[in-house]
Design a protein around this nucleic acid. Structure first.
Lengths: 326, 326
DNA sequence: TTGTATGCGTTATCAA
DNA sequence: TTGATAACGCATACAA
């Protein structure tokens, strides 16, 4: 910057202004400075700028699992908003561990991020303490819980579960089943299960204990889980699958066994994706606005960083997309 | 840090050392400092540290499209290595535009990242200039090109294309087809096509011009493309689909039309995924080590940042997984 | 509209 | 093993 200032015959402050508030310079000074910047290929050091101004444009995102394709849309939404405002995204994977999440939060606070987006909603006491102490905006996106750390942009997994139970009842199914990802540390899955079971009760349906299963992630694991359920509770007529790709794995297992979906058994998924819509039969799913969740979460951080901070509890809702599988 | 120093009765340098090189402090001093840090919840300001030491642990990644699920494995590989070494990942989406890529590269250089990973291998002259001037390590991962900017960790898309052509020939197919994503600005797709066409020639097969198509991304777009190909070149007996999820879209279209795969028409994909392995029929694909590419790319950056810089051209190879669809 | 003086919180360097 | 000092490159605050 000194070099640019020297060559343009101005002070470093003028160069600084040319970059941060060009409107406050005369046209000819601005032109002269920009010319030098282009000519010598000056790239400002934002680390120094950040230290001096005590602000950054860094936003952190911590997701439970980078492999989960369902998150890609939300990440894209975050990316697009941050890019538009010249903010940068730092991202990492906490492997669904609140302890790792806390370590990551501390790391990001040390990097002076101006905001944090957490997909998980279960945190260690340490996470809560340091976040509160830092006073930076924080958005949770994974589940619409009652007491967020700060802001929350999501939809209700438990309401979606209830809605699916109602859907099963309305379609005339009487012996429901439920396969979810392992619940430990996954607030979303727990909420979906609770909502589904409550919805069944409301609809006057009961569920066989043997028809409730937890499985690991992945198509093959889902297939095995489906096989297990079919053996333990063979009269089951409709299964709700909660967790990325589980429903597809279950469908493939049914097809391998020659079961007709939905005639022999109905299936529905908690996560919509292009895939599920194109399977044969097309899968009934919960759809929620994943891209929009990312957009709103990022926008909330940007607004806060720009001084327009406000409380935020945004329920972006969901819908049940009935397709051929129920 | 001053506060910690005061409370521990030491200088700030000693606090600094307690964080960065604890081995150089006496045990009792270290214990005392750490005690104070924990007690008052001190979080160091790495922005200041970065400015002072003229080093960061920030690594940038620019991908062509965050929605592309095929990248998730690579990103996970990068994440895991960076986490292990206490480096942080900054990520963004250049929407397959070299111009946006350049803007992002400049932004990341301003943030003083210690290394950059670029998935694309086509860059503007400006990108090349500023990267060279910055002198930081850079790894390209999307395609094993001849003249990388710096380091490269990938596999050869053109060799994979040739291998698939050979596979078609060996399986007895005689009227091949090719559907790819739009080629503009996609070096990988271009290479795959070139390799496939060259492989066909080598195998003595010719391809109908009407059996070569470019389509937009997405299952539905792939379905339409397949429909178009079947009408324009109805005698086609084996189609290679280059680009995420295209093969699945094509398969669904065949199923809708009552075509048997592979008896009426064979299909193969350029990208392996859990999905493609579980479709019925299971899809023949190219498999390449996506996670390992991320691991090696990140490791190369970390090594460079830690002073162990070395030239790197890593071909991690691929294999053709023959399944039921060919 | 532009410039001067100062400080951001840490680490490199050198000295003790 | 520890400390004093200066410096990193920029932006804030204030003055002109």
């Amino acid at each position: 910057m000194k070099e640019v200032a020297r060559l343009a015959g101005v002070s470093t402050m003028t160069v600084s202004r040319a970059l941060t508030s060009p409107g406050r310079l005369s046209e000819q000074t601005l032109r002269r400075v920009r010319e030098v910047i282009d000519r010598i290929g000056y790239v400002p050091n934002r680390v120094a700028g950040n230290l001096s101004s005590d602000r950054t444009t860094l936003v952190a995102l911590i997701v439970p699992n980078l492999r989960n394709a369902i998150l890609a849309e939300t990440i894209k939404g975050i990316n697009d908003v941050l890019f538009k405002h010249d903010f940068q995204l730092m991202i990492s994977d906490c492997a669904n561990s609140p302890v790792i999440e806390e370590k990551l939060v501390r790391t990001y606070l040390a990097q002076q991020v101006c905001g944090i987006i957490l997909h998980n909603t279960m945190h260690t006491p340490g996470t809560k303490t340091v976040l509160r102490a830092a006073g930076i905006p924080c958005v949770e996106t994974g589940n619409l819980i009652a007491s967020p750390l700060d802001m929350i942009v999501s939809y209700s997994n438990s309401a979606a579960g209830s809605a699916m139970a109602r859907h099963f009842a309305e379609r005339g199914y009487r012996r429901p089943g439920l396969i979810t990802l392992k619940i430990r540390d996954r607030e979303r899955i727990r909420a979906a299960r609770r909502g589904f079971l409550a919805g069944l009760r409301t609809a006057g349906l009961s569920i066989d204990r043997n028809a409730i299963l937890e499985v690991d992630a992945g198509l093959e694991s889902a297939g095995k889980g489906m096989a297990q359920l079919l053996e333990a509770a063979p009269r089951t007529d409709a299964v709700y699958l909660v967790g990325d790709v589980l429903a597809a794995g279950a469908l493939f297992e049914c097809q391998r066994r020659g079961l007709r979906v939905p005639d022999d058994i109905a299936l529905a998924s908690s996560d919509d994706s292009e895939w599920l819509a194109n399977l044969i039969p097309a899968m009934t799913t919960v759809r929620y606005p994943r891209y929009e969740i990312g957009v709103q979460a990022a926008q909330a951080i940007v607004d806060s960083a720009l001084g327009r901070r406000h409380p935020l509890r945004l329920d972006l809702g969901f819908e049940i997309l009935q397709r051929q599988s129920t």
